[in-house]
Amino acid sequence: MAELFNDSNLNSEEYYAENAISFSQNKPPIEGRLAIRKSIKEDLANFPNGYKIAFVVNEVHPSNDGIQVVEIGHYRVSDFVSTPLYTGNFIAVFEKREGKYVCIRDMSASDRPRLESKVKDKKE
């Protein structure tokens, strides 16, 4: 997934299943590989040059039959000199199709405080 962002490689066909659904912050669920690809492309257009994202998988949970795998981890976005800018967490579900694992569902959540919390803190 990091390669999709860091190399502007929009070849989501290798990562997502045709009927995948992706859940992100401040967006409705994105359904289908093509819609996910479009969303990634839009995100990349707003991603400053030199910024990189790194994913760290903390847990891997394969199903007993090996058909599905769940990954749980965190991510970090850094600027062009590797200064961490923000972090978050993710979960991804993969399914083995035609001998290859593809993502069928993923979700991410930023660690950034909500805007309402910042406004509330300033008032107090």
Results as ranks from 00 to 15, higher is better:
residue 47 F to S: 08
residue 107 M to C: 13
residue 2 A to I: 00
residue 15 Y to S: 07
residue 29 P to A: 10
residue 53 I to R: 09
residue 58 N to T: 09
residue 30 I to D: 02
residue 14 E to V: 05
residue 47 F to T: 09
residue 51 Y to G: 06
residue 105 R to C: 01
residue 76 R to P: 00
residue 91 I to C: 14
residue 27 K to T: 10
residue 71 E to R: 05
residue 104 I to K: 06
residue 114 R to C: 03
residue 93 V to W: 01
residue 46 N to K: 10
residue 7 D to N: 14
residue 1 M to C: 10
residue 85 L to R: 14
residue 80 F to W: 05
residue 112 R to T: 11
residue 4 L to M: 01
residue 24 S to P: 00
residue 50 G to D: 04
residue 27 K to Q: 13
residue 84 P to D: 12
residue 11 N to I: 03
residue 48 P to C: 08
residue 120 K to A: 15
residue 95 E to G: 03
residue 30 I to V: 15
residue 122 K to S: 11
residue 67 I to P: 00
residue 101 Y to A: 03
residue 100 K to L: 12
residue 11 N to S: 14
residue 20 A to K: 02
residue 103 C to T: 13
residue 61 H to N: 13
residue 103 C to Q: 10
residue 68 Q to L: 10
residue 3 E to L: 07
residue 119 V to K: 13
residue 94 F to S: 11
residue 74 H to E: 15
residue 53 I to S: 02
residue 113 P to T: 14
residue 49 N to P: 12
residue 18 E to A: 04
residue 112 R to M: 15
residue 24 S to W: 07
residue 112 R to V: 11
residue 46 N to I: 02
residue 17 A to S: 13
residue 67 I to H: 09
residue 54 A to L: 08
residue 3 E to C: 02
residue 90 F to R: 08
residue 38 K to G: 07
residue 92 A to H: 01
residue 97 R to I: 13
residue 44 L to R: 09
residue 111 D to V: 06
residue 63 S to H: 04
residue 16 Y to N: 02
residue 12 S to M: 12
residue 67 I to C: 03
residue 50 G to K: 05
residue 5 F to K: 03
residue 72 I to A: 11
residue 32 G to M: 01
residue 19 N to I: 05
residue 28 P to V: 09
residue 10 L to R: 04
residue 41 K to Y: 00
residue 41 K to G: 04
residue 104 I to D: 03
residue 119 V to F: 12
residue 109 A to Y: 08
residue 43 D to E: 08
residue 90 F to P: 05
residue 70 V to A: 13
residue 29 P to G: 02
residue 124 E to P: 03
residue 93 V to T: 11
residue 78 S to C: 08
residue 45 A to M: 05
residue 116 E to N: 09
residue 22 S to W: 04
residue 60 V to G: 08
residue 35 A to E: 14
residue 101 Y to L: 08
residue 58 N to K: 14
residue 26 N to H: 08
residue 22 S to E: 04
residue 69 V to G: 00
residue 58 N to S: 11
residue 50 G to H: 06
residue 58 N to I: 05
residue 82 S to L: 12
residue 115 L to Y: 04
residue 35 A to G: 03
residue 11 N to C: 01
residue 16 Y to I: 02
residue 65 D to F: 03
residue 73 G to M: 09
residue 22 S to F: 06
residue 14 E to T: 11
residue 108 S to R: 06
residue 51 Y to C: 06
residue 111 D to P: 01
residue 13 E to M: 10
residue 106 D to S: 10
residue 87 T to K: 12
residue 23 F to I: 15
residue 119 V to I: 15
residue 102 V to Y: 10
residue 85 L to I: 15
residue 20 A to C: 10
residue 48 P to D: 05
residue 29 P to K: 01
residue 100 K to W: 07
residue 106 D to A: 05
residue 101 Y to Q: 06
residue 122 K to F: 12
residue 38 K to S: 14
residue 71 E to Q: 14
residue 12 S to W: 04
residue 85 L to S: 06
residue 1 M to K: 09
residue 70 V to M: 13
residue 71 E to G: 05
residue 46 N to F: 03
residue 68 Q to P: 00
residue 112 R to W: 07
residue 57 V to W: 00
residue 76 R to Y: 00
residue 6 N to R: 05
residue 51 Y to T: 08
residue 74 H to G: 12
residue 59 E to K: 15
residue 25 Q to Y: 02
residue 103 C to N: 13
residue 94 F to V: 00
residue 99 G to V: 06
residue 70 V to D: 03
residue 72 I to Q: 14
residue 62 P to F: 09
residue 69 V to M: 07
residue 100 K to Q: 15
residue 71 E to T: 11
residue 35 A to P: 01
residue 22 S to V: 09
residue 41 K to Q: 15
residue 40 I to V: 14
residue 94 F to G: 01
